[in-house]
Nucleic acid binder design. Structure first.
Lengths: 335, 335
DNA sequence: TCTGAAGGCGCAATCGTTTACGGGCCGGTG
DNA sequence: CACCGGCCCGTAAACGATTGCGCCTTCAGA
């Protein structure tokens, strides 16, 4: 027969105390006498007791886990943020559940589901496009947004996206570029908009120029970067540099123009955004704006934990600085 | 005051039945009379009742979640397998917990911890290097390995790695190559070994040649691919093609030789392994062996669910076929 | 010696479900 | 009419931990 694992009862018997004392020894060791504590710990050791998290959670009216809702688990960008959260939650004794919102139909329904399900003590939302009406429900768990943000005043942790756009432009101008294009993310996305705003403000501030025909709409994917390259190739009057709102679009762009026999950075300079791992191994290696993904994840996790502890539905938003990683995809040109 | 969410008691009162009937209606609708069932469902609707998973799990002696242990959450290769598992587990009503084994010290201890903790009803292990002695414990949850495998007879779901190596060689020979090198994964890794075996068997079978100096040891990373390129550059007698045991190493290799001013595929042909997303957007696009990562994840998940249902610690291993994706990193040469 | 406070511990209720068991009720059969 | 077998459903006992309440000891101070 399979021996069930020991319960707190077994430990209590083995130590000659009550279950209450065992429980206290394990959770608040300071309130039990030294001798008792040692007897209990020894009994725990002997019986191989492990606290049953389910029972504990039921009694304590919590679930012991948090859930991360992300648009696409397969996207390395998101999974690196997850990695940052993972360690923080684990140390705090929370399990990290993951769910892919876009893998199935009705992503907003999924969010609503998780808000109501009581499956988690908190939610990290990595998809700012979801705007569930259920966020106004009174008895929902705390939610923090990572990377993206929404109109509702949910706390969020994100990079300085506008600053990144400005940084890219300043660098390009410093390298002698005056005519600068941009590939945006999908329309309506907060990241797209903020990076575009930062880009345009810096263009003006730096005395560079851009124009409507040089602003290509993408969706962060490599394919859309390649499509932008086609549009760029079709221009009679091309910008000498393009700031891409994601590394993936920069890669798509680069691959497509190289495929046409043009060269980066001689024929066009590129600056990406994200600093994904492959960026440094391309030819030429990609100059890009680095987001500290792991830190974003870690901060979001800690923020959520604070809210859970405080029983609060709101908290302070945070902005993480970005920096430019200089590599080889931008040419120095004579102005 | 914050209204707690309705319990099964509230529903029972609202429907004028006992809690047992409510529970039965929700889990085995066929055993309650139609009229009763409708009354209960209506009461559920009215009260906004949601079953408390923690209480249910406690009573049913399960946890309702499975845990995926992966060496590195930030690695897109693994996260895509996760994505494949995610949907399957969700539909089966299981939550998917993730944990990063290598993010913290003592990965084997972590595995042991999860085996004993009772936190999950099953474990998907994506790290074949862990060989916890605890796997022999009698009362452990079922475990399946995905991608990798171990000496112990745990069920596993993996690609046809040897077949992939052979496929690469056959293709290269078909393109006229006779002198073929290889970048392996880390020594001792089962994937490395199997791909190497498939490679060498095919070299012999196809009448091509390789030699010890053309076999470079890598670790699947871009850096190690770049290092292999340095070694390759240092050879006086170079192979005309290199089969890389991962796309990442192929990318590192390609970046490094291009950086030296050599060209792919004119100066060296490359075949990768995995077909990661960026492979098709490189210049040249990378010819590679495709692994069906999402399917691996899905199959592993289903296998684990079967084992959980059957209360079994063993199950059938599966091998998923691979295919060669022809792109532009291999030149046709005159033999 | 008596009193009060405080430290240490046990009793038992409680968290919300599931499910074995048994008891009505109804209809059919002998 | 008695009996029996199915349906349905309610009663109540778990599942394993946490914790408010209160009792008992001990010890210091008067």
């Amino acid at each position: 027969m399979v021996r069930k694992s020991a319960t707190i009862q077994d430990v209590a018997v083995a130590a000659g105390v009550s279950t209450a004392t065992v429980s206290r020894t394990l959770s608040k060791p300071s309130v039990v006498a030294k001798a008792t504590r040692e007897a209990v710990l020894s009994a725990v050791e002997r019986t191989g007791y492990r606290v049953n998290a389910t029972a504990s959670n039921l009694r304590r009216q919590r679930t012991g886990s948090v859930i991360a809702l992300l648009p696409n688990l397969a996207n390395p960008f998101f999974s690196q943020i997850l990695a940052g959260m993972s360690a923080v939650f684990r140390q705090a004794g929370y399990g990290l559940l993951v769910a892919d919102t876009r893998a199935e139909p009705d992503p907003e329904g999924r969010l609503t589901h998780y808000l109501r399900s009581g499956l988690a003590d908190g939610i990290v939302l990595l998809d700012g496009t979801l705007s569930a009406a259920s966020l106004t429900r009174p008895a929902r768990p705390p939610v923090v947004l990572a990377c993206e943000w929404m109109q509702e005043d949910l706390p969020s942790v994100r990079s300085d996206n506008a600053g990144g756009g400005a940084l890219a432009v300043a660098y390009l101008v410093g390298m002698g570029h005056r005519r600068i294009g941009h590939i945006t993310g999908p329309q309506g996305n907060c990241l797209s908009q903020t990076r575009l705003d930062g880009f345009q403000a810096a263009i003006t501030a730096q005395g560079a120029q851009t124009r409507a025909a040089w602003i290509f709409e993408g969706d962060f994917s490599m394919e859309s970067g390649a499509a932008a390259a086609q549009a760029w190739l079709g221009l009679t009057d091309r910008p000498s540099a393009v700031f891409c709102a994601s590394d993936e679009m920069a890669i798509g762009f680069m691959g497509a123009v190289q495929h046409r026999g043009l060269r980066v950075p001689e024929d066009v300079s590129l600056v990406g955004f994200d600093n994904i791992e492959v960026a440094g191994h391309l030819s030429p290696p990609l100059t890009t704006i680095q987001q500290r993904r792991s830190e974003i994840g870690g901060r979001a996790a800690r923020l959520l934990l604070d809210m859970i502890d405080a029983g609060s539905l709101t908290g302070p938003s945070e902005t993480i600085g970005v920096e430019l990683i200089e590599r080889g995809s931008v040419a120095r040109i004579a102005p």
